[in-house]
Amino acid sequence: MSCDSVSTTANTLVGYVNCSSSITFNVTRGSWTSIHPSKKWTLQSTAIDNIVLTEEEKKTWNDSRQALSALKFSPEEEDKILGKAFGHIHSPYWYEERKKEVPRLEVVNEILDYLRSLSLTDDDLTKLVKKFPEVLGCSLEDEMKTNVEILAKQWGIEGKTLRNLLLRNPKVLGYNVDCKGDCVAKCTRCWARF
């Protein structure tokens, strides 16, 4: 039986008619359903297509992408990561406080090198940056190093335990608010989440 004959014989059929490799027609109900499980949609365009940059800024941006190439991201992923980290792509993490800036290779390398100094491998960094791309836009001195010190002094979290924590909850590197239970509406950056 073919799909064309379904319309002429639908009143007498009970069951399913397979019209293609992925769509089945339920004759008794008159509905089409897919027999393949749904798949997640992936972003197929470059994240910086809508960002206006001068030629010099494009060169600076592309240089920064090179720092991420060791982590084996696609060019589209690199652009999306840098866009989120430096305010070009909206991220709830920043609220509206992140000013757009062009990422600089030195800054990206400095942050990646610091993260490596915390016993994170390139595979760990890939997972961390994929989970929390905004880490590349956090302040190394004012947030990341300070927060690692807080974790060590107040909670005794160092070494392998720190590595495991950062892989599980990398946002801790960017916390810069401690509301101490009196909410200041900056929950994505508050130590209360820890």
Results as ranks from 00 to 15, higher is better:
E96W: 04
P103Q: 05
V135C: 03
T121W: 09
G87E: 04
K84L: 15
E77I: 05
T146Q: 09
T121Q: 08
F73I: 09
D123G: 01
L140A: 10
P75Y: 10
K100W: 02
L120M: 10
L118I: 06
K130W: 10
N109S: 07
L125R: 11
V108C: 02
L140Q: 12
N109Q: 13
E110C: 09
L136R: 02
V148K: 09
R104E: 11
L128D: 04
T121C: 07
D79F: 00
I111Y: 00
V108W: 05
R98K: 15
T126D: 08
E134V: 02
R116C: 08
D124S: 10
S91N: 11
D123C: 02
K99S: 05
S139C: 09
L120I: 07
Y114P: 04
F86N: 00
P103A: 02
I111Q: 02
K145E: 13
K131A: 03
V129L: 00
M144K: 04
A70S: 11
L140W: 10
E101S: 14
L82W: 07
S119T: 13
K72S: 02
E134M: 01
C138A: 04
E143A: 11
D113E: 12
P92M: 05
P92W: 04
E110S: 15
E76P: 00
N147C: 11
G83K: 06
E76I: 01
S91K: 10
D124M: 12
L112Y: 02
E97P: 08
K100E: 14
K72F: 01
G87N: 02
S119W: 10
V102T: 15
G87W: 03
E77A: 11
F132V: 00
D123P: 01
L71E: 01
Y95K: 05
V129R: 01
K145G: 09
T121H: 08
S117E: 03
H88W: 14
Y95M: 06
L140R: 14
P75S: 09
I81H: 09
L115C: 13
L71V: 05
R98G: 02
K80V: 11
M144R: 05
I81R: 10
L115N: 12
G87M: 03
K84T: 12
